[in-house]
Structures are given as C-alpha cells and as structure tokens.
C-alpha cells in the first residue's frame, strides 16, 4: 500500500514534469521557456527521490507479491534475473495501467493558456498538500514534502500570475484563458478523492485530509480567477481513474516517448 502511495506521488511529479519539459525550445519567449523547464526540473528531482524510495520498498517485497501488484513483463524479467530495482526501474519498466498519476498531469500542453491553467490547478493543490504532508510520520516522505513545498510555493506564484495576466488581458487572451480553465475543470475533482491506498495509510502516516485541502484550494482558485476577471466553472461532474491506473489515452503517448530507449535497449545507460 505504501508503495502504491509513493508511486502516486512520484508519477504525478514525473508525468507533469515530462509534460512541462515538452515546452523546452517551444516557449513563447525565452524567459518563459526557461520557467517551464526549471519547474520541470524541480518535478523530476522530486520524482527521482520518490522512485528511489519506491525501488527500496519494491526490493523488500516478496517476489509473489510483486507479481500480483504489477503486470509488467519487464519487471518480472528483472526479478527472474535476480536483479534489484533501482531509481529508474519504476518509471521505465511499468505499463501505463500501473501508473497512478492524476489525469490532469497527463493532459496535453495545448496552448499556453492550457498549460498555465493545468499548472495553477496542480501547483495550488500541492502547495496546500505538502504544507500538511511535511508532518507525515514517514521520514522520507516528510523530507520530500518539506523540500518540495519551497519549490511549489514559487511555482504557484508563477502560474497564478500568468492566469491573472492572461485573464485580465486582451479579449482574446481572456477568452483563451477562460476556455482553458473550463476545459480542465473536470480534471480537478480527482485530486481530492482518496484512493484506497491513501485511506488505508491516512492515520498511520498522518496524511493530509483532502477535504480540508480542497477548501483551501477552492479559496485560492476563486481569488485568482476573480483577479483575472474570470468565472469559476460551475460544472460538477468530474473525471477520475488516474490514481487507480485508469488513464486517458494521452499517458500512453507520454510513456511511448519516455520509455522508448529502455524498452528497445534494456538496461542501457548514458
């Protein structure tokens, strides 16, 4: 259960980080290209620590239990060869249904407005989430949360500013920003729905109460949208599934690119 939870945190960071890294060389201006890639780097750094931790937990797990948890043939081959999992194992050798990131993280970049809207929603969630998670009883998770909180504070400042700048900008930028917020809205609900692995660990690890996070999140989003002269979407139907491995088709494309080298040249390093 703990492994699933660690993978959920790591996958969120990896998949969103990968999406943001796709802006590298394509940003509207150099400074914002750099902003995207800097943030991507923070996210990948967070993912690396968590994947190392996940590999340690995986190595401690009995082999039969591993096979029950993951269907990936590559992982089974690793076990059969008696090799240990390492930092790269979980990101490179799992199939998409074993990924536990929220669906919003894998949504395509779209235009600039869609990318900053996605960042605003996720940054805001993790800002309040890590603020609580740094008191987690698991020392490694608490350390990652404490470190990441500093970084996400800065990310949130950046994404909030962009939503306000575009929302309160020209007619065209306002419309694009509002469209992006509306389109991504149905992907925000999943962040506040506890997966089974979270429920079972909540008391033991002192995990954040998602309902309390949601109230704070909602308040910040409302404030930003008000400053941006925009409307909070009213739709209540929400997408879900990513935290339990049910993904949109987009994740497959992300993994096809991300995992290509390791799939074609297993265990290669550079």
């Amino acid at each position: 259960m703990k492994l699933s939870y660690i993978l959920h945190l790591a996958d969120d960071a990896l998949v969103l980080g990968h999406r943001m890294s796709e802006w590298c060389g394509h940003g509207p201006v150099l400074e914002q290209d750099i902003a995207m890639t800097n943030t991507a780097l923070d996210l990948l750094g967070r993912a690396r620590t968590l994947y190392q931790y996940a590999a340690d937990l995986y190595n401690q797990m009995p082999v039969e239990q591993r096979a029950k948890m993951f269907s990936s043939v590559s992982l089974q081959k690793l076990d059969a060869a008696g090799e240990k999992a390492e930092e790269d194992t979980m990101p490179y050798l799992r199939d998409s249904w074993d990924f536990k990131n929220v669906l919003i993280a894998e949504q395509p970049n779209g235009d600039w407005a869609q990318s900053v809207a996605r960042s605003l929603f996720v940054d805001c969630f993790y800002y309040y989430y890590f603020d609580q998670l740094q008191h987690c009883t698991d020392a490694t998770i608490a350390a990652v949360a404490e470190k990441s909180l500093k970084e996400v504070t800065y990310h949130l400042k950046w994404s909030s500013e962009w939503v306000i700048r575009l929302g309160d900008g020209t007619d065209e930028s306002h419309e694009k920003m509002q469209t992006a917020i509306n389109e991504l809205w149905s992907y925000t609900g999943e962040m506040f729905e506890e997966a089974d692995y979270e429920t079972s660990l909540r008391d033991e690890l002192k995990l954040p109460e998602l309902a309390a996070i949601k109230a704070k999140w909602q308040k910040h989003i409302e404030e930003v949208l008000e400053d941006a002269t925009m409307k909070l979407p009213t739709a209540t139907w929400m997408q879900k599934g990513g935290k339990n491995g049910m993904h949109s088709e987009h994740l497959g494309y992300v993994l096809a690119e991300l995992q290509f080298m390791q799939r074609v040249y297993p265990s290669m390093q550079w």
Partner: peptide, 8 residues
C-alpha cells in the same frame, strides 16, 4: 543537501 530537488 541539494539547493533544488532537480539541481543538475
């Protein structure tokens, strides 16, 4: 200790 999580 890293300055930033992803500090290369």
């Amino acid at each position: 200790t890293p300055t930033y999580s992803g500090c290369p």
